[in-house]
Nucleic acid binder design. Sequence first.
DNA 1: CTGAAAGCGCTAACAC
DNA 2: GTGTTAGCGCTTTCAG
Lengths: 345, 345
Amino acid sequence: MDMRDIAKLAGVSSATVSRVINGLSVVRPATAERVQQVIDEYKFIPNGSATTLKYGRSSTYGLIIPDITNPFFPEFIQNFETILADTNYNMLMATTASHPSKVQKTIHRMLVSRVEGIALLASEIETEPIEAMMHNRVPLVTMDRRLVGRGLSDISVDSTSGMKQAVEHLFRLRHRKIGYIGGSAGPTISDHRRDSFFRALKEYGLAADERFLRVGNYRVNGGEAAMESLLALERRPTAVVTANDLTAIGALRVIHRHGLSVPEDFSIVGFDDIELSDIVYPPLTTLHLSQQELARKFVSALDGFQPDSHVQGKQFKVETTLVVRNSTGPVKKRRTASTKSTAAR
Amino acid sequence: MDMRDIAKLAGVSSATVSRVINGLSVVRPATAERVQQVIDEYKFIPNGSATTLKYGRSSTYGLIIPDITNPFFPEFIQNFETILADTNYNMLMATTASHPSKVQKTIHRMLVSRVEGIALLASEIETEPIEAMMHNRVPLVTMDRRLVGRGLSDISVDSTSGMKQAVEHLFRLRHRKIGYIGGSAGPTISDHRRDSFFRALKEYGLAADERFLRVGNYRVNGGEAAMESLLALERRPTAVVTANDLTAIGALRVIHRHGLSVPEDFSIVGFDDIELSDIVYPPLTTLHLSQQELARKFVSALDGFQPDSHVQGKQFKVETTLVVRNSTGPVKKRRTASTKSTAAR
DNA sequence: CTGAAAGCGCTAACAC
DNA sequence: GTGTTAGCGCTTTCAG
């Protein structure tokens, strides 16, 4: 069943059917209605692949996510897809267990499907081979890589002001020894978050003590391991800022496991403000990142690209703001601090 | 740049290029290699929409998820997409904020894109209008609706044996007053889970006490509200089985908020075994549901359908098994039970 | 083993 | 306001 069949049944030509379906107002209302009736009666659905073939436009964007199991991503996907759906676009989605070879294959598949752009949220991945494959066909928009180029845009989270607010908040609560549990070593995003933390410390005249610095992996178990090691210290920090909420949650668990409480014994600050951060006990003080804004910027970076043009991409920024909940509190007057410090692990 | 261009550059015809790309072994190796070189040099990527147009096959399945923010779904998506990617299939994904009108539009878009089948994980949605639209074009596979038909299959979670294990486990821990917090009223899935709980109770000679029965919404806040109301009871249950892990987590929070502990004062059993259930404190005893198996069954239901045939769909089942963690324990010898029972809320 | 050619379904010129 | 038609890029008979 194609437009020609509908045309025959409605006593018009296939061109008119096409015009009706696309809402071109040139068609006489009576004709349009007759055509529409036939369409409805036969539940006709046009074949999009013909349109895609003719115009190269597929009304589809690709989205590649490293690990959908990290709650940050579902929230993003939700927002991203909602925006696309509103403009009748499809979302072709794929995950990569951070497996670069899978990324290559995935992008190839997406390009075969003639997506009009690809959002790649996998900051740890090398994009040279990918960019080669993209070959300026469609825009590539990455997250937190801070690199732009021909047909390559980037959306980055600017943690500067958020980190400053976090450190200020802790400073006012009289914290002076503030630790940091970072993300995985490697990706720019990890460096950026850690560096803005350091800069914020400096602004408040605090020393960046190497001994309070740990590396995580953006997941719960990384936060746990790092916190264990922090608790094993003779002289512990009184507060810890983390590279994301999952890391903070891991830290929280370890603190509880050691019979300590938050925020009485320890203050914890997260990053991202995923939904979970408000559900966990105690609800996390964290740097809020607007998923909606992030998704909107991705879509506009994707949209704002002339097809096939070799236009230079743009660098977008998304700001963060501190949300104070219950995982931060004033420094406890020390008493038994030195007596219980060695037991850990 | 199309196959004809490549053909010219390699001094062959476009038919040969097509054969090389599709790995048809009829081509003489030397020719194939020459063609492949040109393809690589020009980074040629064939236009899938032409193939889709010609053969109606898009190598794409659609997946519709109600609320991706429920961690159950990301885990499913991950598994589903991995299976598809292994066979070079694409996944077109959409979410619906359980908004039926969006489902209609989404499915229409997917059919326009010529997906080869649609997985619909939204048990609360009426599918009549959808089935009409599907019009037996491609298979529709639903979750937990327990309805099959022409081109309509269903994958259901069989909670019978899991619930039996759960009740047995609690019974052995000497629980006799076991409550239940269900899912949202309405969907078959909620009825099924609750009924298998009742049946399990009966097998152990326990009465299904209406007063210990609550309705939730499969989300944390539903579990919270239900647990509040259970705690307000004069005579409380000693254990609660829930319709999913998020509900259990909500219950857990309320119990903690009331200064009680799990499993000392209360035992809680979840359902689904989402990753979070092992991260939460205490880790949940829950009914494990294999996401991998679920995803595999979806894919095989989707695959096993002859295109355009009006074949009857199948009913698939996925079993659950109890995973014992730390949210269940023996009933406490009662002491002050009656004195503290009224304070709640 | 390779090439020529038809046709998948749609849409935008262009003609009327 | 409506119809005719060419052609998007691919695959696959069929011929050679």
